[in-house]
Computed example of a mutant assay.
Amino acid sequence: MTDGNQRAVQAAVDAELRLLDPGVRARPDLVLELLDPEFTEVGASGRRWDATSILTVTGDGSVSPESPVEVTEMSGTVLAPGIVHLTYFADNQGRRVRRSSLWRLTETGWRLFHHQGTPVAGRA
């Protein structure tokens, strides 16, 4: 992986981890700074979300300092210049979900363009 690709992947990883931070999730303005205006998500429930609707759950307390998300097996690859794909497992309150995120570089920085969560039983 080239240095430029490594920096792009690291920037996306840093942004993804910020988005999972309880302090960021509690602030809609900070969440919106990380979401692309065209953001979409297919959640672990199968529900489709956009940037406006996702704000109703990001600050709901399911991710808190007392109940943080545990992230494992985070990896990323550059799909094209300015596009990074991340995959990882997220464990929160006994629920394990395989996550996939597409980040794209915009004039204002890295923004989450698409996210998908798939529930996983046990340690898959």
Results as ranks from 00 to 15, higher is better:
residue 99 R to C: 05
residue 108 T to M: 04
residue 56 T to A: 15
residue 7 R to N: 14
residue 95 R to P: 01
residue 34 L to V: 13
residue 103 W to K: 02
residue 120 V to E: 06
residue 46 G to N: 08
residue 59 G to M: 05
residue 73 E to S: 07
residue 79 L to K: 03
residue 76 G to N: 02
residue 15 A to C: 14
residue 115 H to S: 15
residue 40 T to H: 14
residue 106 T to R: 09
residue 6 Q to G: 08
residue 94 G to P: 11
residue 63 V to D: 00
residue 107 E to K: 07
residue 74 M to I: 15
residue 33 E to V: 08
residue 120 V to Q: 02
residue 81 P to R: 09
residue 68 P to Y: 08
residue 112 L to E: 00
residue 67 S to I: 01
residue 54 I to T: 13
residue 33 E to T: 12
residue 20 L to W: 15
residue 10 Q to R: 15
residue 65 P to N: 08
residue 48 R to V: 15
residue 3 D to K: 11
residue 84 V to H: 01
residue 10 Q to F: 04
residue 122 G to L: 07
residue 68 P to F: 01
residue 77 T to R: 12
residue 25 R to V: 10
residue 45 S to R: 12
residue 56 T to L: 06
residue 7 R to H: 13
residue 101 S to K: 01
residue 60 D to Q: 01
residue 109 G to H: 03
residue 113 F to R: 05
residue 114 H to Q: 08
residue 65 P to I: 04
residue 91 D to L: 09
residue 102 L to V: 06
residue 59 G to K: 01
residue 92 N to V: 12
residue 25 R to Y: 08
residue 15 A to E: 14
residue 90 A to H: 00
residue 82 G to Y: 05
residue 87 T to E: 01
residue 52 T to E: 15
residue 115 H to I: 08
residue 47 R to H: 10
residue 18 R to E: 15
residue 114 H to V: 05
residue 119 P to Y: 06
residue 72 T to Q: 01
residue 112 L to P: 00
residue 83 I to Q: 03
residue 51 A to E: 10
residue 21 D to R: 08
